[in-house]
Write a protein that binds this DNA or RNA. Structure first.
Length: 961
RNA sequence: GCGGGGGUGUCCGAGUUUGGUCAAAGGAGACAGGCUUAGGACCUGUUGGCAUAGGCCUGCGCGGGUUCAAGUCCCGUCCCCCGCACCA
């Protein structure tokens, strides 16, 4: 019988929604549980990655709900930011790649496509589609609290305005400047995702050493200002265009491009004259430290696009400089071209100023030789530079020539040196990008310093301390993520929290700025608690003043006054305040681990800023990022599985279970089509299996096997519950689904007729344990078993210690071991037995065995001591030979047995013969043989090969023929 | 570079905190048998090597060490993945 999942899912979803079982309202009588999932960004459909994380949230929500917690799982949509606008724009421009992705991956129908040129329509479209998927997969959501972000949901915007006004009043938001990678065409910062080229490149601050030249300066850019002590000359590209410019109140000579850059970096620049670099070649400048006069040489390798286009040369320590000089020496013709006396170049001698392990006086000269670098255009120059820079930075010590910095490690003195140089007006700085960055619009980017930018001051030391405290207090799953949090919090600095473009909420005090996407999503969980009221009571945007939020969230002000001013009934205000306090704090938030450094940290930061300690988040869980067929999920590469498609293909429960079984902890789960369809098949068999189980009409009396199964299921309850409490969702699903299945399978194999009452009990527990993972299947079966309530809201199975039965477990493991041993013998001997005899140990062996166990607890016992001890027993003494032989054979095993096992064996001594007799029919069936069971010393026994004497406690002797 | 997470059998993946039922759970795949009109269904067995009696050998990235005992603890070493900001 093939199951129609779609129909089954539909049926139960309707019933759940009709009965409103997931709508949660405050109930002071009950403990509450508030779980959240970061609202997904609506520039595309939900994918199985969202599904994985959100399913973990839902599993926990359903688990807690069944445990009796009043559980709230709300949902919302994130519209804030640039990408939706960008995507809509690309559709408008007819970008084929974008359109193809929409059609093929997202499955957007043709007629909708035209409308997607409008970002708002796009957001609405994906929100609608995604909501369908979220409902279909069966998340237990209270939709009354749903919303989306940006000014298009004005009530939420009011909330964000309140949040930022409050943060500003508290001094956590401030104005500042900041360098960004900037596209002059788009007139906006160019993030990684908006780049055609230069991913991961960010602005770097170069130090400029200002070398006096006539009445002006040549500001040469460097990451290694300490090397100024080794300067021998300057390189200028003779073919590049340079300018003489007034920069503030100094005259600088820099490349034309550099002058343009400085303008973007808030410098006052006035270009006075443009000229070719060759004009400078052959002239002399001064070293600002020693005042030496040094020459300017032609450097065709100098990139005028990079920094200032002015480069000073340190041939002793910079391979590029050394090789450039060498080139000039070897090609006097080139010097003549530019009218330079070769003698000047020949006279240049490297100046050694850093001593570094493994190198002599002139490391650059050595490394050029080692790597066999041909000339300044050899690609190996870069490699040489990297090696040497790294080495000199970490292990290099400045030589006496370096004045007050002599004897110090480069690494430790660098910052101080730069500060000194700036103070002495020897140095300045410029920002630049070390590699080319090209915007999506094909424009070349540069660094711009944004003025009037607003920042969240995550650098504030007190705020940091409080947030660390919040991270310490919260439950974090897995625990290994905690140090990651602390580390990232230390590292966070000012965060630019507003943008010029994209959808969002305008910054209340500064129109033209929009609260940036990661900054309007930090405390919005509080909004869920009151959005229900806003909708129910039709509260208008303009009624939601700062005072209203102040009252609800911070209990500031007088209700009556607030009510009067806002026009919101005092009772409603009080209700909202109460509802907020009921649900807050957030008990659990789950996201992928990529959000730890930003979103989840901001979430903690802002809660500590705005709310008292008792409302700080209680729990955070992170998980890995979903891979598709072993590779990173990527829409542009087509390696992308939408949630909707997964559900269509495999059904909701299979999609849930496949995701959950994929991974836990910080590991990345791998979504494989094959796994999902195999899970689907497994769920079908699960359904059939349950049908069979409950149709059986077996016996009524309780046997030890029934006790064993009841014991086993109790252990499983314990395991699953424990795993879920600590968000080990994979373990929980694995134990709940597969291990219990195997338990029941074993039971059915062992018993001839199952006990139907026991089986029903076990099935009843089983499907309840599985409800969080596969709610539709379980709901259906719960109904088929005759229940008329929802399994989704029924009680979670509770662990009943009284049903734990060590004896049943031990007897069963005796049978399992015996079965294994017997099989092993059959395999080794390759005989097909017709008859098998088992011989259980003689009483004296048990006597010795138990005494040995006792003596070896808790510390190991030696053979000699043990035998001495045993010989005090006259009966054993009379058979000293056998006893010694037996002890020799068993002592090793006994000594290496873990203590708790020893204790267990001492506590319940089993009757082997009785157990084997009970298992006789089973074993006969298994091996298709006749079985005889004897006492080891039974005079009547059949024992042609004299095997009986091998018997040990827990290990009957075996004979077969 | 800084920080985080890892390396286990054909594959995926537990186990490592608290050393001992660990030749190593569970799943997938493969093989064999059973059931069946049929089955991408189900059940049973096998799936590191050797072995005509329940055993032995090898084994958890690599090299050492601690211990009666190490996948698990210690030291060293190699390799892989992820994040690093104005962007969701």
């Amino acid at each position: 019988m093939k199951i129609n999942w779609k129909k089954l899912e539909e049926k139960w979803r309707r019933k759940w929604e009709k009965a409103k079982i997931f709508e949660a309202d405050p109930d002071p009588e009950r403990k509450k549980c508030f779980v959240t999932f970061p609202y997904p960004y609506m520039n595309g459909p939900l994918h199985v990655g969202h599904g994985f994380t959100a399913t973990r949230v839902d599993v926990y929500a359903r688990f807690k709900r069944m445990q009796g917690y009043n559980t709230l799982f709300p949902w919302a949509w994130h519209w804030t930011g640039e990408p939706i606008v960008g995507a809509a724009l690309r559709v408008k421009m007819g970008d084929q790649k974008e359109i193809r992705a929409l059609k093929v991956i997202d499955g957007v129908p043709e007629e909708k496509l035209k409308k997607l040129v409008d970002p708002v329509y796009m957001a609405q479209y994906y929100t609608r589609e995604s909501k369908k998927a979220v409902r279909r997969i069966g998340y237990s959501i209270d939709w009354r609290r749903e919303f989306h972000t940006t000014s298009l949901e004005p009530t939420f915007s009011r909330f964000v305005e309140w949040q930022y006004n409050t943060l500003r009043e508290m001094g956590y938001v401030a104005k500042g400047t900041h360098p960004v990678v900037w596209c002059p065409n788009c007139e906006s910062p160019t993030g990684d995702h908006d780049r055609l080229e230069g991913e991961g490149v960010s602005p770097e601050e170069y130090t400029l050493i200002k070398f006096p030249f006539n009445n002006s300066y040549l500001p040469a850019a460097t990451f290694r200002p300490e090397t100024i002590y080794g300067v021998t000359n300057m390189f200028i590209n003779p073919e590049a265009t340079y300018v003489e410019a007034q920069v503030e109140d100094e005259k600088w000579i820099i490349s034309k491009q550099a002058a343009e850059k400085l303008v973007e970096q808030l410098r006052k620049v006035k270009i006075e004259r443009e000229f070719k670099g060759i004009e400078l070649v052959g002239k002399f400048f001064r070293d600002p430290i020693t005042k030496r006069k040094l020459p300017i040489l032609p450097g065709w390798f100098v990139n005028s696009d990079s920094a200032t286009g002015v480069v000073y040369s340190v041939p002793a320590h910079a391979p590029a400089d050394w090789i450039a000089i060498k080139d000039l020496v070897e090609n006097p013709g080139r010097l003549q071209e530019v009218g330079l006396d070769p003698g000047i170049v020949k006279n240049i001698k490297p100046i050694s100023m850093i001593s570094v392990e493994g190198f002599g006086e002139y490391p650059a000269v050595e490394i050029v030789k080692q790597l066999k670098i041909k000339d300044q255009f050899d690609p190996k120059v870069e490699e040489a530079t990297n090696i040497l820079y790294k080495k000199e930075f970490h292990t290099g010590v400045l030589k006496p020539i370096c004045g007050k910095y002599a004897g110090k490690l480069v690494k430790t003195v660098k910052t101080e040196l730069i500060e000194d140089f700036v103070k002495d007006n020897i140095a300045d700085s410029i920002y630049d990008i070390p590699q080319e960055v090209i915007c999506r619009c094909t424009t070349r980017c540069l660094v711009k310093i944004l003025a009037d930018q607003w920042f969240l001051l995550y650098s504030d030391p007190e705020w940091k301390i409080k947030t660390h405290e919040a991270a310490d207090k919260a439950n974090i799953y897995p625990e290994t993520a905690r140090s990651y949090f602390h580390d990232r919090m230390d590292w966070l600095r000012e965060w630019a929290c507003v943008r010029r473009t994209g959808l969002g909420t305008p910054l209340p005090w500064s129109p033209g700025w929009i609260v940036e996407t990661l900054s309007d999503s930090t405390i919005y969980m509080a909004f869920y608690t009151i959005n229900k009221h806003i909708k129910q009571h039709g509260i208008k945007t303009e009624q939601l003043s700062g005072k209203v939020f102040d009252y609800i969230f911070l209990e500031k002000g007088n209700v009556k006054k607030v009510a009067e001013d806002s026009g919101v009934e005092p009772a409603i205000l009080e209700e909202m305040r109460a509802e907020f306090l009921y649900w807050y704090p957030v008990d659990l938030r789950i996201s992928a681990k990529e959000l730890i450094p930003n979103h989840l940290s901001f979430f903690l930061f802002q809660h500590t800023a705005l709310f008292p300690r008792e409302l700080w988040p209680r729990g955070i869980s992170v998980n890995g990022m979903v891979m598709i067929e072993g590779a990173k999920m990527s829409k542009s590469k087509g390696n992308f599985v939408t949630l909707k498609n997964a559900i269509n293909q495999h059904g909701a429960d299979a999609t849930r279970l496949t995701s959950i079984l994929g991974a836990q902890g910080m590991d990345d789960p791998d979504w494989r089509e094959k796994n999902a369809s195999s899970t689907n098949v497994k769920l079908q068999s699960f359904h059939n299996f349950l049908n069979q189980l409950t149709k059986n009409s077996g016996r009524k009396e309780i046997t030890s096997l029934d006790l064993w199964l009841l014991n086993a299921i109790q252990k499983r309850i314990h395991q699953v519950t424990e795993a879920l409490e600590t968000l080990k969702t994979r373990t929980a699903a694995e134990v709940g689904f597969f291990e219990i299945w195997n338990d029941i399978r074993w039971y059915l194999r062992r018993v001839r007729k199952p006990n139907q009452i026991v089986l029903n009990q076990v099935v009843n527990i089983w499907i309840r344990l599985l409800t969080p993972f596969i709610p539709y299947t379980c709901e259906e079966f719960w109904y088929l078993m005759g229940n008329r309530d929802f399994i989704s809201t029924t009680d979670w199975p509770s662990y009943d210690k009284s049903k734990i039965n060590v004896e049943a477990e031990e007897s069963e493991s005796l049978v399992k071991n015996l079965l294994e041993d017997t099989l092993n013998i059959i395999k080794a001997t390759e005989i097909t037995p017709k008859r098998i005899c088992y011989y259980v140990s003689a009483p004296w062996k048990w006597n010795v065995y138990l005494k040995s166990l006792e003596k070896s607890t808790p510390i190991r016992v030696t053979l000699g001591n043990l035998i001495k001890e045993l010989m005090t027993d006259p009966e054993l003494k009379s058979m000293a030979g056998s006893v010694t032989k037996f002890v020799k054979e068993t002592l090793d095993e006994i000594n290496r047995m873990p203590d708790d096992r020893k204790k267990r064996r001492l506590q319940s001594v089993m009757n082997e013969k009785k157990i084997l007799k009970e298992a006789k029919r089973f074993l006969e069936r298994e091996f298709n043989v006749t079985i005889n069971i004897y006492d080891e010393e039974d005079m009547q026994r059949y024992d042609p090969k004299k095997r009986a004497s091998i018997a040990k406690p827990y290990r009957p002797a075996i004979y077969m023929e």
